[in-house]
């Protein structure tokens, strides 16, 4: 674990793998109740950012957590109980499905079956509220992002980008290869919790009966 400063009220812990990120995130969630001066714990691809309240107490908590972090040994199994399982209905009707199939050397049907047969895990969220970076994508479905990002991708679009799969929570620009559509609402401020996906959530795509 490599600890990097992220401003006077932040620590960026750099880790070797997504599994270690999951484990450290879980360990930090476990101590949050005792550390009220922690403001945010933000897992990402290979890092966990911990931010603290901008106060003298926050600066003290930062020193304390910096000393504690190396002792929070990431468990080999990823640590903690598996997250909740969310099933997202999907139609494999994306505008990039044919191109993805060609890149993978498979038929569109095979891509759909391989994708819907995979259990994903939300590694981290970002880009937009409720956007989860889903890991677990089989290597044969890993494709580069589009050379030309789209200026508008509709809400519910299911995309592939490198090692990740993701669902656009709302209409936005986007560069991922869109293979399908879900009617699930990923982010709804009128709902508690607003975000359907959080770090650790397991995700399966279930093809809608046609």
């Amino acid at each position: 674990m490599n600890l990097l400063a992220a401003g006077p009220f932040g620590i960026l812990a750099e880790l070797a793998s997504a599994a270690e990120v999951r484990a450290l995130d879980a360990a930090l969630q476990g101590i949050r109740a005792d550390e009220p001066d922690i403001e945010d714990v933000v897992p990402a691809a290979r890092t966990v950012l911990v931010t603290f309240r901008q106060s003298a107490a926050g600066a003290k908590a930062r020193s304390r957590i910096a000393a504690l972090l190396p002792t929070l040994r990431p468990a080999a199994d990823g640590g903690g109980a598996p997250g909740p399982l969310v099933e997202l209905p999907i139609r494999y009707d994306g505008p990039d499905l044919a191109e993805v199939a060609e890149l993978c050397g498979r038929s569109a049907r095979e891509v759909a079956e391989r994708h819907s047969g995979t259990e994903f895990t939300v590694a981290f969220c970002g880009f937009a509220p409720g956007f989860g970076y889903l890991t677990g994508l089989p290597e044969e479905l890993q494709v580069p992002r589009r050379a030309e990002p789209r200026t508008s991708v509709p809400a519910g679009a299911v995309g592939l980008g490198g090692e990740y799969c993701g669902v656009y929570p709302r209409s936005s620009p986007g560069g991922w290869q869109i293979i399908g559509t879900t009617d699930a609402v990923l982010f709804d401020i009128a709902r508690t919790p607003a975000a359907l996906l959080a770090p650790g959530t397991r995700v399966r795509f279930r093809e809608a009966d046609t």
Partner: peptide, 10 residues
């Protein structure tokens, strides 16, 4: 650089 958390002031 893979995506990582950002702080205000970065």
């Amino acid at each position: 650089l893979p995506s990582e958390g950002m702080v205000p002031g970065a």
